[in-house]
């Protein structure tokens, strides 16, 4: 009875409010929403203009198909907008990771990495934000956040990691990128978010899944990136083509997949 009375008059910061109150509170807030363009025109269009605070992006694709390079290219594009990003590069040693940038952008990274330590990762994300105002972070890659040896149920544990990352993004107003591998052998044109290794939770908890693969059929140094879905914009299965430029970073390119004009006329 006493408990019921307490709840009936509860006035804490997590009290239940109406949608109207919530709307008014949001409008009262002067805190601007962080937004950042990807620097790839088609991707920006699919993003509804830009990445927004609180969003978690899954970036996947088979091994050696350009996940890290795409992340690095994004970092360079962000740096061109004077937006520094934070990297947890578990896969590449720092020396190699930095050497892959043609011109070193202003990014931040921990001097030493700690694997399988989500609370540590969260602390570093906040440290970088408070010191250097980094609002975008990259984790390369997801499986380094898990202790594979102690993993009992990969799917559930990955789900819990992804959920924590999403919470960090929402609470801190960050944009997160989590790189993850695909199931072995699930490459080729039928690559989709269902190809992501170990867990469907990655797709379920992320705001967007981007799948990258090389497209040698379009020429050397070509790749394609496909937005499997985007929760905010509602985009499904749309993509863009990429090319590795002379500077070693990825840029958008246009590939005309249509048959030559003569063939088109014949088809008509």
């Amino acid at each position: 009875m006493r408990e019921a009375e307490k709840l009936a008059t509860y006035d804490g910061p997590d009290r239940i409010i109406s949608s109207f109150e919530a709307d008014l509170l949001l409008k009262k807030s002067t805190e601007p929403i962080f937004k950042a363009k990807s620097g790839f025109p088609t991707l920006d269009r699919l993003l509804g203009g830009s990445f927004e605070a609180g969003e978690l992006y899954g970036l996947s694709g088979p091994t050696k198909e350009g996940k890290t390079l795409f992340g690095q290219s994004l970092s360079v594009n962000l740096d061109n907008q004077q937006i520094p990003s934070l990297w947890f590069s578990y896969e590449l040693p720092t020396r190699q990771f930095l050497a892959r940038f043609p011109e070193l952008p202003l990014i931040y990274l921990p001097e030493k990495l700690k694997a399988h330590a989500l609370p540590w990762l969260e602390e570093r994300i906040y440290e970088a934000f408070l010191k250097y105002r980094t609002r975008v972070f990259f984790v390369d890659h997801l499986h380094y956040l898990l202790d594979i040896a102690r993993l009992r149920n990969a799917s559930i544990e990955i789900g819990s990691v992804i959920r924590s990352l999403k919470r960090i993004c929402v609470e801190g107003g960050f944009v997160g990128f989590i790189l993850c591998h695909t199931i072995k052998g699930r490459g080729g044109p039928d690559l989709s978010y269902e190809s992501i290794r170990d867990s469907s939770f990655i797709s379920q908890e992320s705001d967007c899944i981007l799948m990258i693969r090389r497209t040698p059929e379009h020429g050397p140094n070509r790749a394609a990136i496909r937005m499997e879905f985007h929760r905010r914009t509602g985009v499904m299965e749309q993509g863009l083509f990429l090319i590795k430029g002379a500077d070693g970073m990825l840029g958008e390119c246009v590939i005309d997949d249509r048959p030559p004009a003569r063939e088109r006329a014949d088809l008509a």
């Binding site: 601007p32 962080f34 004077q82 937006i83 520094p84 202003l106 010191k131 250097y132 105002r133």
Partner: peptide, 13 residues
């Protein structure tokens, strides 16, 4: 670097 962070903060504000 700290100066840049302060400038970003001002710009965001």
């Amino acid at each position: 670097q700290e100066d840049i962070a302060a400038l970003i903060l001002v710009r965001e504000r």
